[in-house]
Measured scan of single mutants.
Amino acid sequence: DIIVVALYDYEAIHHEDLSFQKGDQMVVLEESGEWWKARSLATRKEGYIPSNYVARVDS
């Protein structure tokens, strides 16, 4: 799995977006363009995230 960590807070604009806080970790489910589908490890919610707001966690 690709794990990313939030670099900034993000408040969902559309209902399919995923809100998150700086430091939150998410599993990337699908990478396509600038918006990635991800699942929050904390809340288990899924939605689209702006890929420029996150960084990959080296395992």
Score class of each variant (00 low, 15 high):
residue 42 A to V: 15
residue 46 E to L: 08
residue 30 E to F: 10
residue 37 K to V: 09
residue 7 L to K: 05
residue 28 V to K: 02
residue 5 V to M: 08
residue 17 D to M: 15
residue 26 M to R: 01
residue 39 R to A: 08
residue 32 S to G: 14
residue 56 R to G: 05
residue 5 V to I: 13
residue 58 D to K: 09
residue 16 E to I: 08
residue 56 R to N: 07
residue 4 V to T: 01
residue 2 I to V: 13
residue 28 V to C: 05
residue 39 R to T: 07
residue 33 G to I: 04
residue 7 L to G: 01
residue 31 E to V: 13
residue 51 S to L: 06
residue 38 A to K: 01
residue 40 S to I: 12
residue 14 H to V: 05
residue 47 G to H: 01
residue 44 R to P: 05
residue 58 D to V: 12
residue 33 G to M: 05
residue 41 L to Q: 07
residue 16 E to P: 04
residue 51 S to M: 11
residue 31 E to H: 14
residue 41 L to K: 06
residue 20 F to A: 01
residue 8 Y to P: 00
residue 36 W to D: 01
residue 39 R to F: 12
residue 23 G to M: 03
residue 11 E to M: 11
residue 7 L to H: 03
residue 31 E to G: 13
residue 56 R to W: 08
residue 57 V to W: 09
residue 24 D to C: 04
residue 26 M to H: 02
residue 42 A to R: 15
residue 39 R to H: 09
residue 21 Q to Y: 10
residue 57 V to F: 09
residue 3 I to D: 01
residue 5 V to C: 07
residue 51 S to R: 13
residue 50 P to K: 07
residue 42 A to E: 12
residue 27 V to R: 07
residue 59 S to T: 13
residue 26 M to A: 00
residue 16 E to H: 15
residue 9 D to P: 07
residue 48 Y to H: 05
residue 34 E to Q: 12
residue 28 V to E: 00
residue 42 A to L: 11
residue 14 H to T: 10
residue 36 W to F: 13
residue 40 S to Q: 10
residue 28 V to W: 02
residue 20 F to G: 01
residue 21 Q to D: 06
residue 37 K to A: 05
residue 10 Y to E: 00
residue 35 W to Q: 08
residue 52 N to C: 13
residue 48 Y to D: 03
residue 5 V to Q: 06
residue 3 I to M: 08
residue 57 V to E: 06
residue 27 V to I: 13
residue 55 A to K: 13
residue 30 E to V: 10
residue 7 L to Q: 05
residue 54 V to I: 06
residue 51 S to K: 15
residue 12 A to S: 09
residue 43 T to Y: 04
residue 6 A to M: 04
residue 57 V to N: 07
residue 15 H to F: 12
residue 4 V to R: 01
residue 39 R to I: 11
residue 28 V to P: 01
residue 37 K to R: 14
residue 55 A to C: 12
residue 48 Y to W: 15
residue 22 K to W: 04
residue 28 V to F: 03
residue 16 E to Y: 14
residue 55 A to P: 01
residue 41 L to M: 10
residue 1 D to T: 13
residue 58 D to E: 12
residue 10 Y to F: 13
residue 3 I to K: 06
residue 38 A to Q: 01
residue 17 D to Y: 15
residue 16 E to C: 15
residue 14 H to N: 11
residue 45 K to S: 08
residue 24 D to F: 02
residue 23 G to H: 04
residue 7 L to Y: 03
residue 34 E to F: 15
residue 49 I to T: 01
residue 10 Y to K: 03
residue 41 L to E: 06
residue 32 S to N: 14
residue 12 A to Q: 05
residue 44 R to H: 15
residue 30 E to I: 11
residue 50 P to L: 07
residue 4 V to W: 14
residue 22 K to F: 05
residue 3 I to P: 03
residue 41 L to W: 05
residue 20 F to T: 00
residue 1 D to V: 14
residue 17 D to L: 09
residue 25 Q to W: 15
residue 34 E to S: 12
residue 4 V to Q: 01
residue 40 S to D: 09
residue 24 D to I: 02
residue 50 P to H: 08
residue 34 E to G: 09
residue 36 W to S: 06
residue 5 V to E: 07
residue 18 L to D: 00
residue 17 D to T: 08
residue 24 D to G: 02
residue 16 E to A: 11
residue 59 S to H: 11
residue 26 M to E: 01
residue 59 S to R: 06
residue 50 P to E: 01
residue 50 P to A: 03
residue 35 W to L: 08
residue 30 E to C: 14
residue 3 I to W: 08
residue 16 E to F: 14
residue 46 E to R: 04
residue 36 W to C: 09
residue 32 S to T: 12
residue 40 S to Y: 04
residue 44 R to M: 14
residue 27 V to G: 02
residue 33 G to R: 05
residue 24 D to R: 01
residue 31 E to T: 14
residue 28 V to T: 02
residue 43 T to P: 02
residue 30 E to M: 09
residue 25 Q to N: 08
residue 14 H to P: 02
residue 35 W to D: 03
residue 11 E to R: 10
residue 17 D to F: 15
residue 34 E to V: 12
residue 22 K to V: 09
residue 15 H to W: 11
residue 52 N to G: 12
residue 1 D to A: 14
residue 34 E to T: 13
residue 53 Y to G: 06
residue 19 S to G: 09
residue 53 Y to K: 08
residue 12 A to M: 04
residue 9 D to A: 08
residue 9 D to T: 09
residue 51 S to I: 08
residue 54 V to W: 02
residue 53 Y to W: 07
residue 17 D to H: 15
residue 14 H to A: 09
residue 13 I to T: 12
residue 10 Y to M: 03
residue 2 I to C: 11
residue 35 W to I: 09
residue 19 S to L: 02
residue 58 D to Q: 11
residue 7 L to D: 01
residue 1 D to N: 13
residue 4 V to S: 01
residue 54 V to R: 00
residue 20 F to R: 00
residue 4 V to P: 00
residue 32 S to V: 12
residue 59 S to C: 12
residue 4 V to H: 05
residue 8 Y to S: 07
residue 19 S to W: 04
residue 17 D to I: 08
residue 45 K to T: 07
residue 53 Y to I: 06
residue 8 Y to L: 09
residue 46 E to D: 05
residue 25 Q to I: 15
residue 59 S to V: 13
residue 30 E to R: 07
residue 50 P to W: 07
residue 26 M to F: 15
residue 1 D to C: 15
residue 6 A to Q: 00
residue 13 I to S: 10
residue 2 I to T: 11
residue 44 R to T: 10
residue 21 Q to S: 13
residue 32 S to F: 13
residue 13 I to E: 11
residue 52 N to Y: 10
residue 51 S to G: 08
residue 4 V to F: 09
residue 44 R to I: 07
residue 5 V to N: 02
residue 59 S to P: 13
residue 32 S to A: 11
residue 52 N to H: 12
residue 49 I to W: 00
residue 2 I to D: 08
residue 13 I to G: 08
residue 28 V to G: 00
residue 31 E to P: 09
residue 43 T to E: 05
residue 54 V to H: 02
residue 20 F to Q: 00
residue 48 Y to T: 05
residue 10 Y to P: 00
residue 2 I to N: 11
residue 30 E to Q: 10
residue 47 G to C: 02
residue 44 R to F: 15
residue 38 A to Y: 02
residue 8 Y to F: 12
residue 29 L to K: 04
residue 50 P to D: 06
residue 47 G to E: 02
residue 47 G to P: 00
residue 8 Y to Q: 11
residue 1 D to M: 15
residue 30 E to D: 13
residue 43 T to V: 03
residue 6 A to W: 01
residue 43 T to H: 05
residue 6 A to T: 02
residue 25 Q to A: 09
residue 48 Y to F: 11
residue 59 S to I: 12
residue 37 K to N: 05
residue 26 M to D: 00
residue 10 Y to N: 02
residue 37 K to E: 03
residue 45 K to I: 08
residue 4 V to K: 00
residue 25 Q to C: 13
residue 10 Y to C: 04
residue 46 E to T: 12
residue 40 S to V: 09
residue 42 A to Q: 11
residue 27 V to P: 00
residue 5 V to G: 01
residue 23 G to K: 02
residue 11 E to L: 11
residue 41 L to F: 07
residue 8 Y to M: 11
residue 19 S to T: 08
residue 55 A to V: 14
residue 40 S to E: 07
residue 51 S to F: 09
residue 49 I to C: 02
residue 14 H to Y: 10
residue 41 L to G: 03
residue 53 Y to N: 03
residue 11 E to W: 10
residue 38 A to M: 04
residue 56 R to H: 09
residue 20 F to K: 00
residue 38 A to R: 01
residue 23 G to Y: 05
residue 59 S to W: 12
residue 49 I to E: 00
residue 22 K to Q: 08
residue 30 E to K: 08
residue 34 E to Y: 15
residue 38 A to I: 06
residue 6 A to N: 00
residue 16 E to L: 11
residue 43 T to L: 04
residue 33 G to S: 06
residue 51 S to C: 11
residue 44 R to G: 15
residue 10 Y to I: 01
residue 17 D to A: 12
residue 57 V to I: 14
residue 21 Q to R: 15
residue 13 I to M: 11
residue 34 E to I: 13
residue 33 G to Q: 05
residue 3 I to G: 02
residue 15 H to V: 14
residue 10 Y to R: 06
residue 35 W to N: 07
residue 23 G to E: 03
residue 38 A to L: 04
residue 16 E to D: 15
residue 32 S to W: 13
residue 20 F to Y: 00
residue 24 D to S: 05
residue 23 G to V: 01
residue 46 E to F: 07
residue 57 V to T: 08
residue 12 A to R: 05
residue 50 P to M: 06
residue 2 I to F: 15
residue 36 W to H: 05
residue 9 D to Q: 04
residue 23 G to T: 03
residue 30 E to Y: 10
residue 31 E to A: 15
residue 8 Y to A: 09
residue 43 T to S: 11
residue 45 K to Q: 12
residue 47 G to M: 03
residue 14 H to L: 07
residue 34 E to M: 14
residue 13 I to A: 10
residue 43 T to G: 06
residue 46 E to S: 09
residue 29 L to M: 08
residue 18 L to A: 00
residue 41 L to S: 06
residue 27 V to F: 08
residue 11 E to H: 12
residue 46 E to M: 08
residue 34 E to H: 14
residue 53 Y to H: 09
residue 20 F to M: 04
residue 35 W to E: 03
residue 38 A to E: 02
residue 44 R to W: 13
residue 45 K to L: 12
residue 1 D to S: 13
residue 44 R to V: 06
residue 25 Q to K: 15
residue 19 S to K: 04
residue 56 R to Y: 13
residue 23 G to C: 08
residue 3 I to L: 11
residue 2 I to W: 10
residue 39 R to Y: 14
residue 36 W to Q: 03
residue 37 K to S: 06
residue 21 Q to E: 08
residue 29 L to A: 04
residue 23 G to S: 03
residue 1 D to Y: 15
residue 44 R to Y: 13
residue 18 L to I: 07
residue 38 A to N: 01
residue 1 D to I: 14
residue 34 E to D: 13
residue 52 N to K: 13
